[in-house]
C-alpha cells in the first residue's frame, strides 16, 4: 500500500509544476485555445474538401463513368459489326455452296446426256451389225442346205445307179427333200 501511495504522490509531484493535477483533458484553461484552433482547422478542412477535393473527385468519377459507358457502347457496336460480318460470311458460304451444287448438277446432266447418246448409238450399231450377221448366217445356212440337198440327190442317184436301179429323178428329189425336212 505504501508503494502505491508513494507512486500517487510521485504522480502528484510530477503534476505539481502544471497548473492542474490529474487529467490534462479537464484543464479548463486550455479549452479556449483548443476550441479556437479546432474551429480554424475544421473550417480549413471544410473549405479544402468542399471547394477543391470533392468537386474534383466527383468530376473524375463522372468522367470515368462516362468513359466506361462509352467504351461499353463502342464494344457493343464492334460486336454488332462482327456479327454482321459473320452473317455476310455465312451468306457467301451458302451461296457458294448452292452454286457449286448447281454446277455439279449441270455437269452431271451433260455427262449423262452424252453418255446416253453414245450408248444409243452404240446400241444401234450393235443391232445393225447383229442384223447383218444374222442375214449372212441365214444366207449361209440356206446355201448350205441347198448344197446339201444337191449333194444328197446326186449321191442318192449315183447310189441307185450303182446298185442297178432305174433312176427316177423326181422321186429321188422328193425323197431327199422329205429327209432334209425331217
Amino acid at each position: 500500500m505504501a508503494t502505491e501511495s508513494h507512486g500517487a504522490e510521485a504522480v502528484a509531484a510530477g503534476h505539481a509544476a502544471a497548473e492542474s493535477a490529474g487529467m490534462p483533458q479537464l484543464a479548463v484553461e486550455t479549452f479556449g485555445n483548443q476550441i479556437f484552433w479546432l474551429l480554424v482547422a475544421l473550417v480549413a478542412t471544410y473549405l479544402i474538401l468542399s471547394r477543391v477535393a470533392l468537386p474534383r473527385i466527383a468530376a473524375v468519377l463522372a468522367e470515368r463513368q462516362g468513359t466506361i459507358t462509352n467504351d461499353i457502347a463502342a464494344a457493343e457496336e464492334l460486336k454488332l459489326k462482327a456479327k454482321e460480318a459473320e452473317a455476310a460470311y455465312e451468306q457467301a458460304l451458302a451461296d457458294a455452296r448452292t452454286q457449286a451444287n448447281e454446277i455439279v448438277e449441270a455437269t452431271r446432266a451433260d455427262i449423262k446426256a452424252d453418255l446416253d447418246a453414245a450408248l444409243e448409238k452404240a446400241d444401234a450399231e450393235i443391232a445393225a451389225k447383229a442384223a447383218e450377221s444374222e442375214k449372212a448366217i441365214a444366207e449361209i445356212r440356206a446355201n448350205a442346205a441347198e448344197s446339201a440337198a444337191e449333194v444328197a440327190k446326186d449321191t442318192a442317184k449315183e447310189l441307185i445307179a450303182a446298185l442297178g436301179g432305174e433312176v427316177d429323178g423326181r422321186s429321188v428329189t422328193a425323197a431327199v427333200n422329205a429327209r432334209m425336212k425331217g
Binding site: A18, G22, P24, A27, T30, N33, Q34
Partner: peptide, 8 residues
C-alpha cells in the same frame, strides 16, 4: 505518467 502526453 500515462496522462502527460495529453497536456496542452
Amino acid at each position: 505518467h500515462p496522462m502527460d502526453q495529453f497536456k496542452v
